[in-house]
């Protein structure tokens, strides 16, 4: 639906641009400085990517309104690496983009297509996962996976005086998950009285997290803290705790990513088990598009690597992270 809406919006815009170009024919040399920005992102197949799509379209709306004459943004979604590669060709040859913000499905498969686009003079910003050959990109922006694991560990250590029994959930075996896990354990290891009882994969999925947590509750009679490592998994964890009637002895559950439901719970303080979260918002696509567009409009380059920070969300700052209209 949103794709359709953006499609019509896009063609309306193209029409408007076309007519204004016709009227202002003598001024055509000025129009050459225009930034024609293509955005290539995964289609909305789960809540996080739905957030990516929503924020990309927000960026298009806001930025095109701010720069009506010299910026055009085309947002394309794709449901797999091959489709994304084809789309990239279309963006370059048909849409005629000169700037690209891409969230690649896979690093290896997209490196060559992106390199070809760059060779044709397109300025490339890669988001989230880097390409296998960094020379194919001009700039790289990503969320901070180390902080994603470090922040909850430090928060636990500080709040519970370095003394707690922790069970942890992991996502899907990937480098991203490993980075988070290593960051978490490296902090916990510094505190001899903080013990990780076990960690199992919950596949970033509510149902699997529910099952794993049920079994943790059967297995361990003394759990203080749960690092659910994801807001979706935290929902499954909370249900399992409630079912087992263990709200009394478990002190806190820490999710991750800053989904709006979780942020609202923290803001309203309406679940004693949920007090904090760490941001890893799909909003980073908005930041990436905004920074790229603004730098290109001024003819500047972006820094080679930008890490968009993950922050601790608690009651004091939750409202800054609450976006009720976003699907995530």
């Amino acid at each position: 639906m949103s794709v359709l809406a953006s499609l019509t919006r896009r063609s309306a815009l193209a029409l408007a641009l076309g007519t204004s170009a016709l009227i202002a024919l003598p001024g055509i040399s000025a129009a050459q400085e225009k930034v024609n920005l293509g955005v290539s992102i995964p289609a909305a197949t789960h809540s996080f990517t739905a957030g990516i799509v929503w924020w990309a379209n927000e960026a298009k709306k806001d930025l095109e309104a701010a720069h009506p004459d010299d910026l055009k943004i085309t947002v394309k979604t794709s449901s797999g690496a091959p489709e994304q590669a084809n789309q990239l060709q279309d963006l370059v040859t048909v849409t005629g983009i000169n700037t690209l913000v891409i969230f690649p499905f896979e690093s290896a498969a997209l490196t060559q297509p992106v390199a070809q686009a760059k060779n044709k003079g397109v300025y490339v910003t890669v988001v989230d996962r880097g390409l296998t050959d960094p020379s194919a990109q001009d700039a790289y922006m990503a969320g901070d996976n180390t902080a994603f694991g470090k922040i909850p560990a430090e928060y636990f250590a500080k709040k519970y005086d370095g003394k707690a029994n922790i069970v942890a959930l992991r996502g899907i075996p990937t480098t991203l998950d490993n980075e988070r896990w290593e960051a978490f354990t490296s902090v916990i290891d510094k505190y001899p009285d903080m013990k990780i009882l076990d960690a199992q994969y919950g596949n970033w999925n509510r149902d699997d997290a529910f099952k794993v947590m049920q079994d943790f509750l059967t297995r361990f009679k003394d759990i203080d803290l749960v690092w659910a490592a994801d807001d979706d998994m935290a929902i499954g964890v909370l249900q399992a705790i409630r079912q087992a009637g263990r709200e009394g002895d478990i002190k806190e559950v820490f999710g991750g990513a800053g989904a709006k439901g979780m942020v609202k719970t923290i803001m309203d303080d309406d679940n004693p088990l949920i007090k904090a979260d760490v941001s890893y918002s799909p909003k980073f696509i908005y930041e990436a598009i905004k920074r790229t567009a603004e730098a290109r409009l001024k003819g500047e380059e972006l820094p080679e690597t930008t890490i968009l920070p993950s922050e601790l969300i608690d009651k004091s700052n939750a409202k800054d992270f609450y976006f009720p209209d976003s699907p995530f």
Binding site: M1, S2, A44, H46, S47, T49, A50, V53, P327
Partner: peptide
């Protein structure tokens, strides 16, 4: 389903999930 959920999750209103809960729990 993905389209209905706009890629996210479709969630039962809280009061209703209290009513419906006993069917599972």
């Amino acid at each position: 389903l993905t389209w209905l959920a706009d890629g996210g999750a479709i969630t039962l209103d809280f009061g209703l999930s209290q009513t419906y809960g006993p069917v599972y729990y």
